[in-house]
Structure formats: structure tokens, C-alpha cells
Design a binder for these strands. Sequence first.
DNA 1: GGCGGGGCGTGACAAAGTCACAGAAGCGCT
DNA 2: AGCGCTTCTGTGACTTTGTCACGCCCCGCC
Lengths: 223, 223
Amino acid sequence: MQQAIGDWTERFDGTRQLPRDLRDRLLRLASLRRFKAGETVFAPGRVPNSLLLLLEGTIRVFQTSDSGREIVLYRVEAGQSCVLTTACILAEEAYSAEGVAETDVVAVALPRSAFDRLAADSEAFRQFVFAAYSRRLLDLLRVVDDVAFGKIDVRLAARLVALADAEGALNATHQQLATELGTAREVISRQLTEFQRRGWIEAARGRILLRDVPALKALARQK
Amino acid sequence: MQQAIGDWTERFDGTRQLPRDLRDRLLRLASLRRFKAGETVFAPGRVPNSLLLLLEGTIRVFQTSDSGREIVLYRVEAGQSCVLTTACILAEEAYSAEGVAETDVVAVALPRSAFDRLAADSEAFRQFVFAAYSRRLLDLLRVVDDVAFGKIDVRLAARLVALADAEGALNATHQQLATELGTAREVISRQLTEFQRRGWIEAARGRILLRDVPALKALARQK
DNA sequence: GGCGGGGCGTGACAAAGTCACAGAAGCGCT
DNA sequence: AGCGCTTCTGTGACTTTGTCACGCCCCGCC
């Protein structure tokens, strides 16, 4: 982890196409930041005054309600930027979402001034930023749709498939899955019991094995 | 309605501060668009290739589920821009929300190329655009929060207060209110019956009178 | 006056969320 | 191994919300 990152401008659509001089400027202006898994990257009150560009790892962005329940809004993956924060930075408004590193994270922090300069100088960069915004907006629209109109068995099936690794396994407690979908643990427990009864999954403490991915996918496609 | 709009660049934070030459360029490049109340401004498949800046009226933006239920995401008011569309235009991605004119609407349409040029030339304009994004993101976060964690009596009370005019009256059917909150008509009917039993409102066909706004506001503040 | 359609009320039921509690599984410690 | 603690999971009873089916009422229109 200690090795140099090198020319990270190579890794983003929005920076790869920039002329050499802009890229060099970026390399000078941006600083490297690392977060350990579980660390909070941003939260209400803790405003990082810069745009984060993820090089490695993923950040889970979620919202917490007053009553303590949570819901995952989206994940920021390597090669993407964390625009939600940016939006609120640039608008100097309070936001209510929180981001934690889901794995160890390496990111580039681009200070606000540099961000603005780049936005002025490069159409490619503007494209990149707007595309990122667009993506998040669409993510949020999806969340609204799911929460407002989706059935939880369908949503849970989809999430299980999405979170599982190549072997069809995932480490997650019922509570964590409840947080993913913004529901209560008991609801997840009951659904998982039902899935297990049907032989679709095999549950262990904090771990779930998908036994019938096609069946889960079929359910997930519904509605 | 036929009179000239004049220098509309005066009306937006993002354009008011621009130098005279840029503003003149804007006035040349942008075109005036009008929509009648009820008309669809944008919808999946009908992508206006420009940024809309609202001069008069309001646009209701909502999402429709496959099953036909709807939910209002936010409203675009005069002086604001319709960035959700923009995001999707710029990213060239499909979006799933729809916008209809809630009143007669007068707007300025700024073509994509002009938008981009302006974004390059003016920091004030960039600020404006990002602030608009930020606002919508926050609106959507609010919707997610409400839908995922809010109780409908609270949400309905809040919406009644928000939609009522100065006299505490609003014209809306139960179905329309259901659409506001993304729920079913029967749910609204029952809640309204309860509100009426408590003497908080008075209901007529397609019309509701708020009799005890403080009580409604108190309920709305909860949670 | 009769007719038709949108708006509204209601009962019965299904799905989801809440509350309370109990048992099981891991984990550290001796 | 045994103990005690915490966390995770299962379950029953109940509330809230959403769904379905139906019937009535109001109002405009022929």
C-alpha cells in the first residue's frame, strides 16, 4: 500500500482526455487520501472541502433517519467520484447522507479551487462531472422507486445477488441487509427463512450462501 | 402573455452576475418556450436537448412505477432550473421521471452547446448549476427519507399545509394527494376521514379546507 | 328524469413494520 | 472445559400500510 500511485489521471474518463499540462497541474494540486475499512469518509458536519476521486475500494453512502433506521443510497466504486458531497460543498448546504469506507480506500482529493479551474478549462472534465451527477440522480430515483413501490422479497433477492461474490456467498448479518434496504431486521429474517425453506439460500451466522441464483434472479426481475 | 419577456437574465442568480456580453449572447442563443397547465414538459423518450430555466409557473416532477402508482419528487419553481433533465441530457442516459406543467409555464431553453460554453466561461454560472443540482439531490434525499421512514399521517399533514393557499384551502382529489405521497387513494381517504373527525379539516369533493393549521403543523413536525 | 363517470367510503384481507422476548452462536477469559 | 457476555437470529402478537372489491354519491349531460 505504500507504493506510489503514479499518474492517476490515467484512471478517470474525465481526466484521461485532458492535455498533458492540465494533468500535470492536477497531479500537483490533488493530494492522496487513504481510509481504512469502516472509517467514515464524510458525514453531516464533517465536510471535506474537496472532490474525492476513488482510485481503489468502495464507499457506501447511506442515510440515517431520526429513529435510527438506515438505508443505503448507493456505492461509490473505483473510478467514480463522490459528487453528492461535492454538490453540497459547492452549494454550501447541509446534507444528510453519510459515507463510510466499505473496504480500504485510496482516493484523490481535489480541492475546490482546482476543481473549479478544471471545470472552466476542460469540457471533458465537465462531461465527467455531469455524468457522475447524472448517475447519482438516477441511482436515487431507483431507490425512491424501490422504496415506494417495490416489494421486499423482490428487493432482497436483488440485493443478495448484487452483494454476493463469485462463489455466491456473502458475509452480512440480517441487520446489515435490513440497512441495505431501509427496513427492519425482523422483516429480513422472515424473508430469509422463507428463501431457505425454498432451498434458494443457506444461512449461517453472519453469512449467506446462495444455492439457487437463477431463482433469486427470477424473483428480482419481477416488478 | 404575448408581451416580450425582456432581459430574463436579470431573473436568475446564475445569469444576473454575468458580464454584459455573455448575457447578450445568452439572449440570442436561448429561446422562449411556453407550456399550458397540464402539458408534459419532459418524459422518458421525449428529451428536450436543452436546459430549461423557469421564468413563470411551476413544473411538477414525478416518477411512475410499473404498476401505475406515482410519486411526486419535487417541484421546479420560477427562478429555478430543471437540472434533472439536464443531468440526463449531458450524460445521454435514460431517465425515468416525468415533468408536467402544474400551471401555465414560461421558460427559457438553453441549448446544450450554449450551456457548455457558459459553464466554461463563467464561474457564477457554474455555481448556479451546481447549486441547482445540490438542491435537487437534497430534495430527493428528503423524499427517500419520507418514503422509507415517514408515517403517512405526518407526511399527509405536511403536504396539506404545503399545498394549501393563503386561505388554507386546496383543490385536490384524494387520488392526487395519494400521488403526491406515492401511496394509495384509500390510505389518503382514511387519513382524511380521521383528520376530519378531529376537526382539523373540512372535506368537499375535490377540495379541502384546513380548519386547524397549527394542529396539522404540529403533527407534520413529528418524526 | 335517467345515465354515466369520477370521486369517495368501507370492509376484508395481505404485506410490512413494531415490540417484546427468548434461545443460539460466537468469543474472550480463567 | 466452563462461564459470562455480546451479538445474532427466530418467533408470536399486534399495528400500520397497501390491496382488492364493491357500492354509493355527486354532478354534469343528454
